[in-house]
Design a protein around this nucleic acid. Structure first.
Lengths: 143, 143
DNA sequence: TTGAATCCGGTACCCAGGTACGGGGTTACC
DNA sequence: GGTAACCCCGTACCTGGGTACCGGATTCAA
């Protein structure tokens, strides 16, 4: 057995800088279960394995795709144990969420367009004819 | 002069119920400047003019259209003094915001579609060929 | 060895838009 | 005039994703 090169462990400042993340965020992610508790130096300083930076990149990508930190934690966790179709299912669910959000934004956009087109000049006492503001009030069912 | 019918003043519970809002929310809106300080009963209970319910409906409509409470307060305030084109300008700005948001959601949606289509099975160690997850990580510029 | 740089844990704070709680005063109705 | 229902104010708490501050300990390089 070669003396297994354990050199490249990183301290938290290095991980934070390379991943473009605050150090506090690393501890926060650790509390949230996104990062495993790293090994420690004799004095208690964290020593991260080098893959941590890549993992943080993945986390940021997943966040960008609309997953909450809890969801990311769960995905990392199940993916660590065994590859499952969970990720695909969750991604499809996110797509549906996004479609709903886009649909909602689109109707809001239409209402705003009507407000602009009608020339509304006041929220409370609009003087424009056929003011669409009351109608905008009716569409209060969120997705 | 007729003895001016000041009857229909509402107490906070009535306003809250008719507007579908929590009583605490009324006091919160008062603090935030969305509702003027109402007159009080001899014992200190709030007595709201009947138009308050309609105003709350307007506030909820504006919120639904994407305006923050601060923006709504400002719109109510300027609209109270004199009709201005502010509302139209703000509405147009909101439309632009919404367009940006929709565009962003659309690119995220595309990334998710690729993840599903490629059959990704793990965030950390995906075994699918040409895994799009690293690419999804690159698109990290928010709107 | 000493000084600067880094890191530790714990706690508090930030954003927005509210909601909940507790102890006490008021109002309304029979 | 009792008593139930209502309302007062101040303050703390909630969600989500972090960030900031603190006093003290550790690590690293000269």
């Amino acid at each position: 057995m070669s003396p297994e090169p354990e050199e490249p462990y990183l301290r938290s400042g290095q991980v934070a800088e390379q991943a473009g993340v605050n150090i506090q965020t690393l501890r926060y992610y650790e509390r949230r279960g996104l990062l495993a508790e790293p090994r420690r130096s004799p004095g208690g300083h964290r020593a991260y394995p080098p893959g941590t930076v890549a993992l943080l990149t993945v986390i940021k990508a997943a966040q960008r795709l609309g997953f909450t930190l809890d969801e990311v934690a769960a995905l990392i966790d199940t993916g660590r144990r065994h590859p499952t179709p969970d990720l695909r299912a969750q991604a499809q669910a996110k797509i549906d969420e996004i479609d709903a959000k886009i649909a909602d934004l689109t109707t809001v956009r239409e209402s705003l367009t009507q407000v602009v087109a009608a020339g509304c000049d006041s929220l409370t006492g609009c003087t424009c004819p056929d003011c669409p503001l009351p109608a905008a009030a009716l569409a209060d069912t969120m997705y």
